[in-house]
Design a protein around this nucleic acid. Structure first.
Lengths: 253, 253
DNA sequence: GCTTACTGGGTACGCTGTACGGGGTAGTCG
DNA sequence: CGACTACCCCGTACAGCGTACCCAGTAAGC
């Protein structure tokens, strides 16, 4: 499973694509496709297979055209990824929430999690300087609303949602990775741990790394317990939100 | 800049490599290279160039051998990445710290940050199920020591350091990405924002997304202020540690 | 000295993104 | 209406990737 880096293309060209600023041609045959169709096909492939299965030829096959035809609509693969990103950001739920900042931020985290689970390839493409398309702008606006007017500076507001989003990204990625490893290898964490325990013991694992082997064993055993990923996700998220709460009360003194 | 996925190879073969469990050959010519040499050359390339410059042929050139020779030492590129990961984990400082859990966890975060800054490609390869080599085990052991005996369960201990490490990963990746974009494009965040402001205004940015444009502008302007990355890093880290502190005091009630 | 396990590495296959250029099509202008 | 030309689709080609396969050369064991 590879992952690519968004923002690798020409940012100006990506922006033109994202906001539909291309000057429309007047002469010549009508285009058989649209950028949206190309993007939708690419998202379909990335969703149902994975990011490394996403190639220009594969997208072209999906649309029943030649590979080079895609370059009539998109400058290159990097810009296509930018468009894909913004298009799925556009389906961010943005459900209205009654409650304080904490309830709203929690909802933001859950919606981000939903998005990642629906489009797992996002986990491997999300960049720190994403293209400023309409989808991302709307998502960012919604997220900022959760922390507006609670006493944070603009920079702190941005840092707060970056903190939450960063946590969600890491947590969901761990969970998705683990699930994929289990699916592809056919063995669970517990089984894997048990299978390799003798090898690690032979090396002197428990003597040299007592804490690591104790905690590792416990975590491995608990991993397929009834409360699994949901519990762990909420646990970490609560810590992050507690941290923001601590900042707020410190500022009020 | 691409990134690859560690753990994609055969875990058993990676483990053998990591712990040096290969049965040594008795007959035939002496190998001209060692796994360590191959790994060191690969790390050198990834450090000085980047992860997408790391190819088997490139590593072979660095060592003055043919490309296929590497497959005498390493089953494939995926396993080579595993070995590279564990080898740089092995240089994790693990400085002893006097103080409470918070001072120790802060030190863990700073050392992780150093490691990422010294080997930026780590940011694009780190996986959730890394190979359990000696380097990672020692690092994990050291990190667990920071939160041992402060009243957390084993699962909570693991979750706590995963939380800190996840934060560091995200924060450093953002900083490194930003720096690379500035270097490669030659324009700073502020200049980029100013250059695209008229375009975004034409679209109706400020009307549709008032918060996003206000906060975005502020963040863009502050970004190359004197206190930049160090301040922001500590800010987020303090929030994470506050969150763990809140958990600890809640458990003591 | 023969056998045999092992090493180095050349060649080749299928994959990638995409530069280039050719042939067909449709709207515009003399 | 014919010519022009901008635009469409896309076949070919190239450089690069990971690596399967295979063969020649080497050195240890019998």
């Amino acid at each position: 499973m590879n992952s690519e880096y968004s923002g690798a293309g020409d940012p100006a060209k990506s922006l033109e694509l994202l906001w539909g600023l291309q000057s429309k041609p007047t002469r010549g045959p009508k285009p058989a496709l649209t950028v949206d169709q190309v993007c939708a096909a690419a998202v379909r492939i990335a969703d149902s297979e994975n990011l490394s299965a996403l190639s220009m030829r594969r997208v072209a096959d999906e649309l029943g055209v030649g590979a080079m035809t895609l370059y009539r609509y998109v400058p290159g693969k990097a810009e296509l990824l930018d468009v894909m990103l913004d298009s799925v950001y556009g389906e961010f739920p943005r459900r209205p929430v009654d409650g304080d900042w904490r309830a709203k931020l929690q909802e933001v985290a859950l919606e981000n999690r939903e998005l990642y689970l629906r489009h797992p390839w996002l986990l491997y493409v999300a960049s720190s300087r994403p293209p400023l398309g309409p989808g991302l702008m709307a998502k960012y606006e919604y997220e900022l609303e959760a922390v507006e007017g609670i006493g944070l500076t603009d920079v702190e507001m941005d840092a707060a949602i970056a903190l939450v989003n960063g946590y969600v990204h890491g947590a969901v990625r761990s969970a998705v990775d683990a699930k994929q490893v289990i699916q592809s290898s056919g063995i669970t964490d517990k089984e894997w741990w048990l299978a390799h325990a003798p090898l690690l013991e032979k090396i002197g694992d428990a003597q040299k790394f007592p804490l690591a082997s104790r905690v590792g064993t416990t975590v491995g055993e608990e991993f397929d317990a009834p409360y699994d990923s949901d519990f762990l996700f909420s646990f970490g998220l609560d810590r992050v939100l507690d941290g923001i709460a601590a900042l707020l009360s410190a500022k009020q003194l």
